[in-house]
């Protein structure tokens, strides 16, 4: 569960103050809003990548504002995926596990499990440069979910994909919630994606995050 209570965050001259919302455990929430409204800034603050000026963030009941990003139990897939150009797909899937000092057999088993689920078995020794958009997105998802986080933050995961790949990645995202049992906070500006994937749609307006019924949004 994600509970954000009166959160304040500043990014240069841009400032959000008093932002509150909640996403129940296991749900997929899409956070929408105009360009420049601060969706990504808010996501970064929740992940611990941006200092907050006040308020609380509770993840599964645990206050995390004082915790380092790696201790929050959040998997992040940023908009540009930020794959590591020097690592193979296998090394991407094993990265968080190596950092967290999992044993070699446990890492191997988890990498095989992820590769099978995300259909990356045939790409394990490839580097990001040769991957399609859909394949790269699956690698970014696998890397984020490898250490079994309870929260998954997605920043515009479908924005740079053509229609075919968009459909493919939507399908993967649909399976993530059931397979990985995570609560998802998904930043998007695409209404169709939100309607298709979300249990809950949140709209960031000014400093307020307002829950909106799927039907209440225009086409």
């Amino acid at each position: 569960m994600i509970q954000v209570d009166r959160l304040g965050v500043r990014a240069g001259r841009f400032e959000l103050a008093g932002v509150s919302f909640a996403v129940p455990a296991g749900q997929h929430a899409c956070l929408m809003g105009r360009t420049g409204s601060g969706k990504t800034t808010l996501l970064e603050a929740i992940c611990g990548l941006r200092a907050v000026t006040g308020g609380q963030v509770r993840l599964d009941g645990r206050e995390v504002v004082h915790l380092a990003p790696g201790d929050r139990g959040i998997g992040l897939v940023p908009q540009d995926r930020a794959l590591f150009e020097h690592l193979t797909v296998r090394e991407h899937l094993a990265f968080a596990l190596a950092v967290r000092r999992w044993s070699a057999p446990a890492v191997r088993e988890r990498v095989e499990e992820l590769a099978h689920w995300l259909q990356l078995d045939h790409l394990l020794d490839r580097r990001p440069a040769g991957l399609s958009g859909g394949e790269a997105q699956r690698v970014a998802l696998g890397r984020a979910l490898a250490f079994r986080p309870t929260i998954l933050c997605l920043d515009e995961p479908l924005s740079a994909l053509d229609d075919d790949m968009r459909a493919e990645v939507r399908e993967v995202l649909r399976s993530v919630r059931h397979h990985a049992r995570v609560t998802i906070l998904h930043v998007t500006h695409n209404l169709a994606d939100a309607r298709d994937l979300a249990d809950q749609i949140l709209v960031l307006r000014g400093a307020q995050v307002v829950p909106v019924a799927k039907d209440a949004l225009g086409t």
């Binding site: 970064e44 992940c47 611990g48 990548l49 380092a68 990003p69 790696g70 201790d71 929050r72 959040i74 998997g75 992040l76 940023p78 540009d80 930020a82 794959l83 590591f84 150009e85 020097h86 990265f95 968080a96 950092v99 967290r100 890397r143 984020a144 250490f147």
Partner: peptide, 24 residues
């Protein structure tokens, strides 16, 4: 952004630098 992702994956800043930034 790559360093930020490395931090969420559990790296300390120095680890993100040595394992993600410097090799590239």
């Amino acid at each position: 952004r790559q360093e930020q992702v490395a931090l969420t994956l559990g790296c300390r800043r120095s680890q993100a630098f040595w394992w993600v930034v410097l090799p590239q």
